[in-house]
């Protein structure tokens, strides 16, 4: 994308991740942000993209999750037996 040109919504979507990762050079960044001001649906698109990433990050049981699933006893036994070879 060249800084002096307007972005289309398609280009906006193409550059979303680079924007969120702060990988756009300054001039392109301001073109990108300009589009967001002019095009409210694209701002909404960016918000829902960000939510998507957050939802993905949140589905995983974290270390502080108090109740991870139990390992079935049969698997524990198989692993311990395999160790003894």
């Amino acid at each position: 994308m060249s800084p002096e040109m307007d972005l289309t919504c398609k280009e906006f979507v193409d550059f979303l991740m680079a924007y969120l990762d702060a990988e756009l050079p300054e001039a392109q960044r301001s073109t990108f942000e300009g589009h967001m001001v002019d095009c409210p649906p694209c701002k909404v698109y960016l918000d829902t993209y960000r939510e998507t990433v957050e939802l993905g990050r949140g589905v995983c049981a974290r270390d502080d999750d108090p109740l991870p699933e139990d390992v079935p006893d049969v698997l524990v036994a198989a692993i311990l037996a395999a160790r003894k070879g």
Binding site: T8, C9, K10, E11, V13, P41, C42, V44, Y45, D47, T48, E51
Partner: peptide, 12 residues
Amino acid sequence: DDGHLERPAQAW
């Protein structure tokens, strides 16, 4: 064809 989203995004 003009680069707009076919279905504009809606807030969640």
